[in-house]
Nucleic acid binder design. Sequence first.
DNA 1: CCTCTTTTTGGAAGCGCTTCCGGTCACCCT
DNA 2: AGGGTGACCGGAAGCGCTTCCAAAAAGAGG
Lengths: 337, 337
Amino acid sequence: MTDEPTRRRPTLDEVAERAGVSRTAASRVLNNAPHVSRDKREAVQRAIRELGYVPNPTARALATQQAGAVALIVAGDDPAVFADPFFGQVVAGATTVLEETDLHLMLCLATSARGQLRVQQLLHTRAVDGVMLMALREGDPLTRLALDADIPAVFGGRPLGQDVPSFVDVDNVGGARAATEYLISQGRTRIAMITGPLDTDVSRARHRGYREALTLAGLTPHGEEPGDFTELGGITAMDALLARHPDTDAVFAANDNMAAGALRALRRAGRTVPGDTAVIGFDDLPVAEVSDPPLTTIHQPIQALGQEMTRMLLALVAGGSPSPLLLPTRLVRRESA
Amino acid sequence: MTDEPTRRRPTLDEVAERAGVSRTAASRVLNNAPHVSRDKREAVQRAIRELGYVPNPTARALATQQAGAVALIVAGDDPAVFADPFFGQVVAGATTVLEETDLHLMLCLATSARGQLRVQQLLHTRAVDGVMLMALREGDPLTRLALDADIPAVFGGRPLGQDVPSFVDVDNVGGARAATEYLISQGRTRIAMITGPLDTDVSRARHRGYREALTLAGLTPHGEEPGDFTELGGITAMDALLARHPDTDAVFAANDNMAAGALRALRRAGRTVPGDTAVIGFDDLPVAEVSDPPLTTIHQPIQALGQEMTRMLLALVAGGSPSPLLLPTRLVRRESA
DNA sequence: CCTCTTTTTGGAAGCGCTTCCGGTCACCCT
DNA sequence: AGGGTGACCGGAAGCGCTTCCAAAAAGAGG
């Protein structure tokens, strides 16, 4: 190794020269394109090895007009929302499929005004080849921005009040129905719901599923209280529910965090679960396994969500026109219901 | 708006032409550099506005030899580790400081062999201007790779068994000592510890702090059991601890997840907390507030960690040589101890 | 009014790679 | 042997921006 402190990294020209071929030929073997004779190909490969050459991605990007990266954009108003393990799993899923390509993952939290602006630039400048958007609120300007930016975009969960061509979502309505029906099948009749913030499609869909199941069974909602998807919010909502309807015998929370909160509120109120009140959640996050009692919940394939979003984006980038996707959910029976 | 379907985006040349100046001048106003007369500057600005010009970041990157992005690399062997809210907070912190610059955040999970490879490429090709590395295990090849790649790098938490020039860490030893001393000050004497995986510096440091406090007080460890930083691991470890030393009157868990697990194991074993056994955690994650009882724990400024890592990286990229940083921790008293 | 600075200008040379396209050359078929 | 037919090959033109540098313009000073 003759590594001078900061030697300029070798360029394709140098490789070509050393291999005694044109830069064009060198480029061809790099991208293993045809029309290079066996000899030259090998000469170039040797030169590459000897020089320790590694192509400059920026130059390649400029020449090919492809950024070599896609972005995951997380909206919301608080940077802390990203601390939700949900996103971590989505990222993990996205990563597994991106790993198989030569694209990188750019992460943008569009939570502050500054952040929104930067996302806007990102879209405008085409610094990425495509974007995945999540956690959009109703009327979030980002939705239009992304749609208008003429850049491949897939949405994780449908944005409320705006039809988008490419999205992958979870069957929230079906899951919520299944949850509620399960409660009903257990003989519960005074079923309350802790909803999510109602300016999101996911919350609305889960609420709809709950209502549908109730209607089908000839029941009516026994109290509905909005939460904010946090455990604390679940506690507050459950307290409110209990105050209004002390005879509630079951509650469906729109996510596990809130269900866990409900569990705590119920215990604090001296009620047993599932004895006095059954609780069912949604998401099947880690917390569901370790809450007390463990949560019966609707499992949603979060990592798969990340994967499918990414696959769809890749298809879009490749010029395809994939159809929207709805991922299935399934009931996970544990002890809270 | 005369937006044809897919009109080529305007280039700097077009701006220059329209403004009646040279491309050089146009570039100058873009980067608001000196040596441009007032008139021309305004003309260029107008042209930019009228054309809706937005500079091409790739071209700029090629010319300036700066990627315009930094990477956050998360090691570990399971993509799911990233689901830990810890990382979410780090990302949030990093984002807040990056937002003030014109750098983007690239996220890499080096959890699979494939992932490691891609990170290696990332370093080699200089696709980013700098990297932040986290969750490195002892002897992780990534450490050397990053150090050798001749690219600005800051480590989040010191990698075990390898001195690195730039890192920001939390005062794990001090925090662990404070936690243990608090337990001691409450009159506990049979104090066990649930450690993290001992091939990480953070686990070792917290363990050391625990030992130091014990020694200072003339006490000895009352059982030590390694966990894996998950709630489940905490349950298992606590069960083991209880089996060996049923008279344990306090336990210090190396993080909140495991502390929460310990809480559950203790309850299951019919013990009261803090009555029979006091429990103290580390991290002050959201779970600490909502566990039952709420966890007394050592707060560590995770978001600040992300911020400081990023600031340090920026300093490095700018050619500076910042000193390592140790962030303070503080005891948060709740009800478990 | 003329010389000496100080500013302002823009031509041109990159940054490192891809790719169009016209030219070679070997080979095969009548 | 002449004419095709392809597979090779490499020159050169980009991709869109920054920046060096020589030249031109504008002030300053006498």
